[in-house]
């Protein structure tokens, strides 16, 4: 596919980044202060989407140091993903109306 404009991928990434900061700013200010602790635990869980990098590193056939590091990172990120979402769910279930 021919690109009409020759834009470097970094510029596209930067565009996404800046827009997402703005979205984050407005969305987080709308979070009720009563839920700030679940906000921290869920951001913890979702920041572990860094697992996508770990998965790629752990995926090649040949063994290497890079692959070992990737495998460990998959494990660490998984602790966070499962732990983060589970503890968030546990907390949210405590919030009840009268």
């Amino acid at each position: 596919m021919e690109h009409v404009l020759d834009i470097h991928p970094l510029v596209i990434a930067l565009t996404i980044f800046v827009m997402a900061i703005f979205i984050g700013y407005y969305v987080v200010w709308s979070v009720t202060p009563a839920l700030h602790t679940p906000l921290m635990s869920v951001t913890n869980a979702i920041s572990s989407v860094i697992i996508v990098g770990a998965l790629l590193a752990a995926a090649p056939m040949e063994s290497s140091l890079a692959k070992i590091l990737g495998g460990v990172a998959v494990g660490l990120a998984s602790i966070n993903i499962f732990g983060g979402f589970a503890v968030t769910q546990r907390m949210l279930q405590m919030y009840k109306r009268k």
Binding site: A13, F17, A20, V28, W29, V49
Partner: peptide, 15 residues
């Protein structure tokens, strides 16, 4: 990963 990083980064900064 960029989107999440930006969301979490600004969330922590606001808190």
């Amino acid at each position: 990963l960029i989107i999440v990083g930006a969301l979490v980064g600004s969330s922590g900064a606001i808190l």
